[in-house]
């Protein structure tokens, strides 16, 4: 017997639940016992569809059904005839079927997920240690000499628990949708983003202090927002790898909307797009690279504020969004 093809019944996650080899055309599909492909689906008709050979081509004929079938994004009612090629997928009722043919081109072999490599694990360990050291360092900075060591405990215990729980929940999501419990990929993603945000959060204001270029400190909020969006996008694209593109568009839009909202709120509350009002981080004096100016020059610079202030003072309608009580108190 020559195997002419294969009809696969897919499970809800896209995996193959059942295969029916085809040795001759036509092939009938339905709930009736005499069908070649037997469906256990109450929304399927007794003889829902038939695949016939029409010369060299194959045609899917929709049988006597009230629901019709769905193929290539279209509904096909009873009596339709649809040409079929290898790899075609269609839905009958709640079942998904796929046709495999010997002459169809195969997708190339995919490399194994890097999560399983030893290098990845090594990097995760290094990242985890770096993060722990960073947070312990912050705790050390905030403490006074001679403070009890107990202050470090929440960091030492809390961080691994929090990070573990976070990655575990995302990995559960992966398990549901991809059937792989991708704990390490989720963990390494969270680690990378957290480290990046800590590093940027610390370095940007210091760089602003060193150079006297305040704008560096002012983009921090937006960067944090971008990193947050990137983190969620990363987790979700691990869970739904097939939807990466849609997710990217979605999160880019969310970031754009969130960033605009943030800027607009800044503008309304503080009359400026980017906070903070002044460069509020001081570094060690040795870090300062920017030159100093004289008091007289500084006062001269401050005189330049006058025009903007006078213009804003005339704009008395600017506070219309404030509730009366707030404005009066």
């Amino acid at each position: 017997m020559i195997r002419l093809g294969l009809i696969e019944l897919l499970d809800p996650h896209g995996g193959v639940a059942h295969r029916v080899p085809v040795t001759q055309w036509p092939v009938t599909i339905g709930r009736a016992l005499d069908c070649d492909v037997l469906l256990d689906d109450p929304h399927a008709a007794a003889c829902h569809a038939t695949i016939r050979a029409d010369g060299d081509a194959l045609v899917l004929e929709v049988g006597d059904t009230r629901n019709g079938l769905r193929l290539r994004g279209r509904e096909w009612p009873a009596g339709s005839r649809v040409p079929l090629a290898g790899g075609a997928e269609w839905r009958i009722g709640r079942s998904t079927l796929r046709l495999r043919l010997p002459d169809e081109a195969l997708a190339p072999e995919l490399p194994l997920a890097p999560a399983t490599t030893g290098r990845r694990r090594h990097a995760v360990t290094v990242g985890l240690v770096a993060l722990l050291l960073w947070l312990l360092g912050e705790q050390w900075l905030r403490s006074d000499p001679g403070d009890p060591l107990g202050g470090y405990l929440p960091v030492l215990v809390g961080l691994p628990i929090a990070l573990g729980a976070w990655s575990f929940l995302w990995a559960l999501g992966s398990k549901v949708f991809t059937r792989h419990f991708d704990f390490v990929p989720h963990l390494s993603l969270a680690l990378a983003v957290l480290l990046a945000s800590l590093l940027l959060g610390a370095l940007l204001p210091l760089a602003a202090f060193a150079t006297g270029w305040e704008a560096l400190a002012r983009i921090r909020d937006l960067l944090t927002l971008a990193l947050g969006a990137a983190l969620l996008y990363g987790h979700l694209s691990l869970i739904l790898p097939a939807r990466r593109q849609a997710l990217a568009v979605g999160f880019a839009t969310m970031f754009a909307v969130g960033a605009s909202l943030h800027l607009v709120l800044n503008q309304q509350r503080q009359d400026r797009w980017f906070g903070p009002l002044y460069l509020s981080t001081l570094g060690p004096p040795a870090l300062r690279l920017a030159p100093t100016t004289s008091t007289a020059e500084f006062i001269e610079q401050a005189r330049g504020l006058r025009g903007a202030l006078e213009q804003r003072a005339r704009d008395t309608g600017g506070a219309a969004w404030l509730p009366d009580d707030e404005a009066d108190e």
Binding site: G212, Y278, R288, T292, T293, F298
Partner: peptide, 12 residues
């Protein structure tokens, strides 16, 4: 009005 600021490193 909302505050407007000038800031610099000054040597005095």
């Amino acid at each position: 009005t909302a505050p407007q600021c000038a800031e610099r490193f000054v040597e005095q």
